[in-house]
Structure formats: structure tokens, C-alpha cells
Amino acid sequence: MAAAAAAARQPGPVATSMQLKLMEGLKPISLAIQNDSHKHAGHSGNPTGAPDAETHFTVTIVSSAFEGKSSVTRHRMVYQLLQAEIDAGVHALALKTKTPAEMGLKLS
């Protein structure tokens, strides 16, 4: 049980793979991938409710790659990078896509 709880806190293989792809594809200055799968245990997309499920995520990305792009375009950029994960069973991705300027940050 303690091992399962620890596993849930560590990024799983899907989260790790998403992180690598987003880092490479968007060169973000900030990237947070939060696994929300436990909140959807037993629901559609995460029917088994396994403690290490990787089906629902909230991804917050701050990247200058989003500069001058609409939200739809930004989300599509993320979906394209993560196509393999979505096809393989990631059921929901809540996305927050911001530019450094929108976060009140200035790149030196």
C-alpha cells in the first residue's frame, strides 16, 4: 500500500514521456504535469481506478512558442506533440497554455 501511494506521487511512464516531448517541442520556461487520474477513479477513462493510472492530466505550460497564437492553435500544438499518449489511453488533458508575457514575465 505504501509502495502504491509512493508510485502515485512519482511521475509515471506516461507523464515522463509527455514531459520529454513537451520540453523538446515547446522549450517551455515552465511546465507542470499534474496527474488527476485518481479523481476520476471508476469513471469513464479510468474505470479500474488503479493507483498508478495515467488517464487524466492537467498540463500547465509557459512557452514563448505560444507567442501570437490563438488558444485553439496552442492546444492543437500540445495535442499534436502528445498524439501517441492520447491514442494510447490518455483520456483527458486540461490545458493551460501561456506565454511568458501573459504570466507577467520578461525574458532577458
Binding site: 488558444s71 485553439v72 492546444h75 486540461a94 490545458l95 493551460k96
Partner: peptide
């Protein structure tokens, strides 16, 4: 016109 999903609607 397609505007997006729930995150974008919320943002708008």
C-alpha cells in the same frame, strides 16, 4: 466557428 473545448471557453 469552432472555438475550442472547456478550458478555452473558461479562459474566454
Amino acid at each position: 466557428e469552432f472555438v475550442g473545448g472547456s478550458d478555452i471557453l473558461h479562459e474566454m
